[in-house]
Design a protein around this nucleic acid. Sequence first.
DNA 1: GATGTAATCTTGTACGACAACTATAGCCGT
DNA 2: ACGGCTATAGTTGTCGTACAAGATTACATC
Lengths: 258, 258
Amino acid sequence: MTSSPEFKVERLTVAGSLTDRVCEALVQLISGEDFPPGSRLPSEMKMASRFGVSRTVIREAISRLKSEGLVESRQGSGVFVREENMDAPFRIDPNIMDSIQSVLQVVELRKVLEGEIAGLAAKRRSREQMAAIRQALKQIDTDVAAGSDGVDADIAFHRCIAEATGNPHFLALIQFLFNFLRNATQTTRGIEATRATLTQQVKDEHRAIVEAISHQDSTAARAAARLHMDRASRRLGTADIKLLQSASTAANLTPSTV
Amino acid sequence: MTSSPEFKVERLTVAGSLTDRVCEALVQLISGEDFPPGSRLPSEMKMASRFGVSRTVIREAISRLKSEGLVESRQGSGVFVREENMDAPFRIDPNIMDSIQSVLQVVELRKVLEGEIAGLAAKRRSREQMAAIRQALKQIDTDVAAGSDGVDADIAFHRCIAEATGNPHFLALIQFLFNFLRNATQTTRGIEATRATLTQQVKDEHRAIVEAISHQDSTAARAAARLHMDRASRRLGTADIKLLQSASTAANLTPSTV
DNA sequence: GATGTAATCTTGTACGACAACTATAGCCGT
DNA sequence: ACGGCTATAGTTGTCGTACAAGATTACATC
């Protein structure tokens, strides 16, 4: 091996800082077949030379990859690609938030989950859990009467139902989806307003879910929850779509001027 | 303000590199009330002085926090705490892998998803997607005949179905669950063996799913997928439970000796 | 051939310098 | 007095060098 290049230098992306670009390029190289799991990637000096950047940039990029669990560095030995990316978490790409369609797709995911969660909760809920659900339902009214937008109480309500399944992963997953949707929609503040105006309809939907769970009728609970989410996505899809779209385009024009 | 310390220097943890410790300390400070969302944290120079490390270390720590979405840096202005931790990913605590019950709970989550995914795929699949699903089903046989355990092909099969929903989040989520389950079970190699011995039954279950999707019968598709997952969890719950348990206890004894 | 040691390579950390960019204070013109 | 422009200081981004700490390899020695 006289001077065989240890890896091809990918075209660095045009946007972002040097560290961003190098990071992206390295992820591509690791994802590809250039560096299989367990292999050692070139020394920081060599990478700096190949990419035409300083070692500082390489080190910061490696630092990110380490925090994401893609690589692992051993002092004096080198940087190695981690065996498994089992820790690769489930995350939704934040820059798809612009797209109203993607938000609706997340809502669809939530709809599926809420339906099954309600069905399972109907089967398994204990008496205490049933009381907690009823209490959470009341809390929504209390909060709204006190001037709150009721979003927190609404989330707590659905969390109570998820807890009643006895499977903590359902709770964790819908909590994650709540976080995402809240952040995706909070830019406009349109959803909360919509929810506030449609309180009566939402209240009826909630009651239907609670009643079904109370009667341990899992089929009805699933249907009620799905209907609830269907209507929620419809509310999202009609009134607020323009707001969200305009907000997203505005965000595109001013990427970091927030 | 003459010389009010802008933040208290937390005790740096004893283990890990300087970057690790600084990173941890910063996370604590951000999680606490010292630096609320939107606030600017001290300049890199000041932090370097406070922590008694070089600016390099601070920069690498900040780089990690940026990749984790906790902070955001603006050149010439400073480093700011991001508004919401909307990026908080959905991840399953790795140390629950010990518990066979938790694994079964994840399987239940997958069961729910696979059922709904199959139902949606039955409604929406295009002709090309149907062909891809059939192709993936055949590939399982091909791989198994070639001596493979067929796990990869099995995953690819279910991925094809998820793709046919047209909602990429379903695909991403079940891929995440696959990764977790694979890592949770691969220690014993017991599951693959089980799956290999029960090929005929699994094949029948797969065929039922494919036929239902082909006929665009979403109810049948959902039922078939749920049955498939039910049987999978039963297979998991009976034969391999002892293997998994023993493997988990062994893993506890050797936490990082892999 | 086994073994201990030195040379060498790699990552970790520190320091200094400058470029690119921002925000602010202050000056100036009106 | 007020608005707009500029100078200036502060901050992040990038570069380079240097050395410490740990690991690997080669080699000399027995």
